[in-house]
Design a protein around this nucleic acid. Sequence first.
RNA 1: GGGGGCGUAGCGAAGCUGGUUUAUCGCGCCGGCCUGUCAAGCCGGAGAUCGCGGGUUCAAGCCCCGUCGCUCCCGCCA
Length: 605
Amino acid sequence: MEYLKRTTTCGALRKGDAGQIVALNGWVHRKRDHGGISFINLRDRYGITQVVVDADAEAALKASAAELKNEYCLSVRGRVRARPDSMVNPDMPTGEIEVVVSELQILTRCETLPFQIDERSDAKEETRLKYRYLDLRSGAMQYRMRLRHEVAFAVREHLASEGFYEIETPTFIRSTPEGARDYLVPSRLYPGKFYALPQSPQLYKQILMVSGMDKYFQIARCYRDEDARGDRQPEFTQIDIEMSFVKRDDVLSMVERLFGHVFRKTLGEELPANFRRISYDESMELYGTDKPDLRFGLAMKDIGDLAARSTFQAFKDALAAGGAVKALVAPDKADYSRKQIEELEAAAKVYRAKGMAWFKVAAGEGGAAAQLEGGASKFFAGEGAPAGLASDLVAALGAKSGDLVLMVADAKRKVACQSLGAVRSKLGKDLGLCDPKRFEFAWIVDFPMFEWNEDENRWEAAHHMFTMPQERFHATMESDPGSVKGDLYDLVLNGYELASGSIRIHDPDLQKRVFKIVGFSEEDAQKKFGFLTEAFKYGPPPHGGIAPGLDRLVMLMAGDTSIKEVIAFPKNSFAVSPMDDCPNEVDQKQLDELHIKIVEKAESK
RNA sequence: GGGGGCGUAGCGAAGCUGGUUUAUCGCGCCGGCCUGUCAAGCCGGAGAUCGCGGGUUCAAGCCCCGUCGCUCCCGCCA
């Protein structure tokens, strides 16, 4: 049967349209049947319009209306009517009008839903993913998909305006070492050989610079076979960018302009022209992480000197072992219960802290210096503690009466910082300091170039092997790899790493030295990256780039905490798609063609 | 690889220390009433092998063992 095609959408009609005859297509969002009269909220992507089957409608029409259930797909024709003043719904954009139905077609029917499609639906993620097509009908998901589209569009708009070319790179590439596990694609034509799906287009974009493309970008799908997290999926999308003849600050300001445009266009939000910059070392010392949430302060302090004067053996041992003692002031939280403090300690222990010490600050009597109370106070103010230590500590922390002080010591400086940093994050959340409507960007710069791998007893690249070591370290690179800073930068937003990038090495000799430090022999380099080193023999330009994560960006803009919310068809935490039950077995014939044999894992115990 | 949490009707939850029960509640669903609702309202109804398997017990949704699934985190991963 020919269906009645819409003349407008469910979000379009206003008071001025009264009197018009219109046709609408959409889904029954809700129905209210009053016996004589019935109201149907008809929904499409553009909005919701109330359509009315009046009491004096003909019998056949009333019969059709009586049949309607949620999510039936309809076509209706009717006259737009201004609602009487008392019946205007100010919460609906179309609330001043309704459509009086003269013709109603049920296009398709809908079975009882597995969950309700509205703002109140609180179905489990598992169920939502299985019926993703229904979940995507909800207003919240429609908003997320629209925002994602608009962000991607604004990215293209802005980068094109700055002269970038969008260039596609292959998704079947050769497997390269380092980084995450690759997803592999077997080759039918070449038995025993495999393509890999790219973890990122890193090598291609550098080669495009050698090709003189000058400014490249791509909204690129990336694949990493690692365990999922709230902000991680096996496949995800990066706004991949690379530029020639630039230095670090050129890349940073380009990104500041890009994000400024994107936030202005999509959220109407004005970002600062420049984002603050924090060195990696400072970020670790103050916030215990390289991706601090800067919507709140609660910065940590180093109290090593003061802890050394205390009688707290655990602290002194940590310091003697070359570690650190870090402290954090929770303002006005002296009323925290034992249980609340234990919950904070649990957060610290996740990052391998052995414990968390604390004390409360109370007013001294008669204007005397502040008193320490409870927990570890006796080590600073008790018997045997040096006179004045307590007040020195309170002064150094800038604490006042009524504050709670939290401390973590560890023989490893990083463990102390990360653990108390986790406490800081939890405190920020618990105290409601993480307003999802606020966007606090920062650049983290001066990352270490190399990290010592304790298991393998060797240096490895903290970022990747093509990162430029900062020039001031070129002379001492081999003698002291640990102190070399790379020309590296991360963009962080509200506690998430939003982008990561670097200036790359374009000098083949320097590249060889870096390979050597991370134990990558010339033969290895030749075998794995031969095409790149070969390309770099032919006049490569100085270049650098960055790759903001589109999923995380949209997630934060939408106020979500999982990128699954802003991906149309995500995988669950076990890399499975519950809707289509993927991954799944394939036919033996397909395996045969690919020369692949499945070997059952032997039962081991 | 490791740790925390969860699994009770289509959905979301409650169910105390194992026992006065026929496993409770809200939404949804089915039937009826209702002319202005917009999370409509009122009356009635159906719907559950309490994830699965085993064990302890006079008695198990609740305790024990195993197993499957989901979720968050550490590791891993830029």
